[in-house]
Amino acid sequence: MKRVQRDRVEARVAMPSDIARVLADLYIVSSAAAQLGGYGLEVPDSQWQALVQQTQAARAVVNADEVIGASDGRAALCRLVTMCEDIVELYTTGRRCPPAIWREVGRMGRDAYSYVTSGAACRGEPLRD
């Protein structure tokens, strides 16, 4: 399929730096685990514990509508948190997470992180197939 680039609208995401830090931490932790899992490598227990903690912290932030508000950035962050929760559930039930899901988490993390960068202009709509 041909990738079509739609008109993009520049928008700024105004969120407190401590909130942005929690969400950035989830991106960092999930991306590090995704780099291993995406290649079918074992994710160490210490990384799993960090992923669990950061996912829980980010979920609390994402659920606070009055802090982030309704935006494309919030939607991207919600998708990342939900995907991380799904991966954590696989881990806690003893099931293996397929490499394709890890790669998708890495992609979602990059998409969501673009909305977290403090004071930076963010793209309003990603490219679609």
Rank of each mutant, 00 (worst) to 15 (best):
Met1His: 13
Val4Phe: 11
Arg6Ser: 15
Arg6Asn: 15
Asp7Glu: 15
Val9Leu: 07
Arg12Ile: 15
Asp18Gly: 11
Ile19Thr: 15
Ala20Met: 02
Arg21Tyr: 13
Val22Gly: 11
Asp25Gln: 10
Leu26Ser: 00
Ile28Trp: 05
Ile28Gln: 06
Ser31Tyr: 11
Ala34Asp: 08
Gln35Pro: 06
Gln35Asp: 13
Leu41Met: 08
Leu41Cys: 02
Leu41Asn: 05
Asp45His: 06
Gln47Asn: 07
Val52Trp: 07
Gln53Ile: 04
Gln54Tyr: 04
Thr55Cys: 00
Arg59Pro: 06
Ala60Glu: 12
Val61Trp: 04
Asn63Met: 12
Asp65Tyr: 15
Glu66Asp: 14
Val67Ser: 13
Ile68Lys: 04
Ile68Ala: 06
Gly69Ser: 00
Gly69Trp: 02
Ala70Thr: 12
Ala70Gln: 12
Arg74Gly: 00
Ala76Arg: 05
Leu77Glu: 01
Thr82Phe: 04
Met83Leu: 14
Leu90Ile: 09
Leu90Asp: 14
Thr93His: 08
Gly94Thr: 14
Pro98Gly: 11
Pro98Asn: 07
Ala100Arg: 06
Arg103Gly: 04
Val105Pro: 00
Val105Thr: 01
Arg107Ser: 13
Met108Asn: 08
Met108Ala: 08
Met108Phe: 03
Gly109Val: 00
Gly109Met: 00
Arg110Thr: 09
Asp111Gln: 11
Ala112His: 04
Tyr113Cys: 05
Val116Tyr: 00
Cys122Leu: 10
